[in-house]
Computed example of a mutant assay.
Amino acid sequence: MSKSRKWFGSDSAQSSAEQDDRVAVSLSHLRSLEFSARGFSFSPRQPVRSILSGQHASRLRGRGLNFEELRHYRPGDDIRTMDWKVTNRTGKPHVRVYTEERERRVYLLVDQRISMFFGSERAMKSAVAAELAALAAWRILGEGDRVGALIFDDEQCHHFTPRRSREGVLNILKQLERSNAALTAGCRANAKQLNLAADALLRHVTHDALVICIGDGFGWDEGTDEMVKRLSLHNDVIAIDVFDPAERELPALKELVVSDGESQIVVAGTREELQKRFEERHLQHVQHMREAFQRFGLPLIEIDTVGDPLKQLQRALGTQP
């Protein structure tokens, strides 16, 4: 590895508490992010530079509409609200009246599988994903909307019904802490769990919700494409791709020792050969995810493990240049 890049955990000047939060976040750290969750928003009104604005991607739908009542047509009513079936049956013009929902449902789909347990510099991807989820949850709650989550690891999914309360957010953060703490080098990867989690989310999300997917896209395939397409038909979908720079550019070494936590092998060859093989195999799922979101016209935000997650969110959502 080049001198400019240090593997995570090599800085002895860091305190043990800070080191722990970069490997496995604590509940106290996630709670503290409430006071810094500012300068970005997932609301339909976005700054011009935001990736969620109309110039860069399809606008967010915002809150949905609830049916209120049927009543007689009055001069000035929008003809598009006419209920023609009732009008034909009664012989008198009727309109359907809707009211805007006072709060929107937001779901966080957070990946906490072993593929996220990697970091070459500042923090593990799993820890950054947990921080991003906490920042999003606190911000959504601050905007008066309900926030729920589906947090999944390599074995199971944890569902939290959207609620507009601090208790609801804290329940999500507690599970993020537990999921972070459970990740160890000996865990076995389960690529199929992504689709199982997406399928579970589809059973809970109906319409006019905002779904924020936070992860690295490991295991993304044609089945994932179909589920995201179904989700986006009646909901807004945003993906936050969490990546580490070392995943995109291999260190300048003639050979690498690669381990899955139980066994290890030596990968030899020229740097060009290694880089090509690495990109073809390891980043295939990432490219598939990017192409799917581009094809469906959905926004994709890229967050690395080196910079401050909050500042990166603020830049992506247009509040910082």
Rank of each mutant, 00 (worst) to 15 (best):
Q193N: 06
V237D: 01
E249K: 12
H234N: 03
V258S: 02
R281E: 07
V228E: 01
W220P: 01
G223T: 02
G219W: 08
D216K: 07
A268M: 07
L233D: 07
L194D: 08
G261Q: 10
I238Y: 03
R248H: 12
A197P: 06
I172T: 01
E279D: 14
P251W: 08
R277C: 02
L202V: 08
V257F: 07
I214Y: 08
V205Q: 05
H282L: 07
E167D: 15
G168W: 12
L202R: 14
D236Y: 04
R248A: 09
G219C: 04
G168F: 10
H282K: 10
D236E: 08
I172K: 00
V266C: 08
V257M: 13
A182W: 06
L231V: 05
S165E: 09
I240M: 09
L274F: 01
S232R: 06
V205W: 05
Q264N: 07
C187H: 12
R277V: 03
L250F: 02
E167N: 15
E262K: 09
D221K: 15
D241C: 01
A189D: 14
A181M: 08
P251G: 04
V205N: 05
R178V: 07
L201F: 07
V211Y: 07
E262N: 05
R271M: 05
A197G: 04
V205I: 12
E262R: 07
I214P: 03
T270K: 10
C213T: 08
K254A: 11
T270H: 08
T184E: 12
R271Q: 11
E262D: 06
N171Y: 06
R277K: 14
E255V: 00
A198E: 10
A268R: 13
A181H: 13
R271W: 13
N235S: 11
D208N: 14
D208T: 06
E222N: 14
E273H: 09
H282Q: 12
D208Y: 07
S232D: 03
G223P: 11
E226N: 12
D236Q: 06
K276C: 03
W220E: 04
A209E: 15
S263D: 15
L196T: 12
L256E: 04
E273V: 02
A189I: 10
R178A: 13
D260G: 05
L173T: 13
L201P: 01
H207M: 13
R178T: 11
G215N: 10
V266Y: 06
R281N: 07
E279N: 11
E255K: 11
Q264H: 13
D199A: 15
L196A: 10
R188D: 09
K174P: 00
L250Y: 04
D244T: 01
G269A: 09
V266A: 06
I238W: 01
V211M: 08
I240L: 13
D244K: 01
S165A: 09
D208M: 03
F278V: 00
D199L: 14
A182E: 10
L173H: 11
L250D: 02
V258Q: 05
A181Q: 15
R188L: 14
E262C: 01
E273D: 07
Q275H: 03
G219K: 08
L196I: 08
S179R: 14
C213S: 08
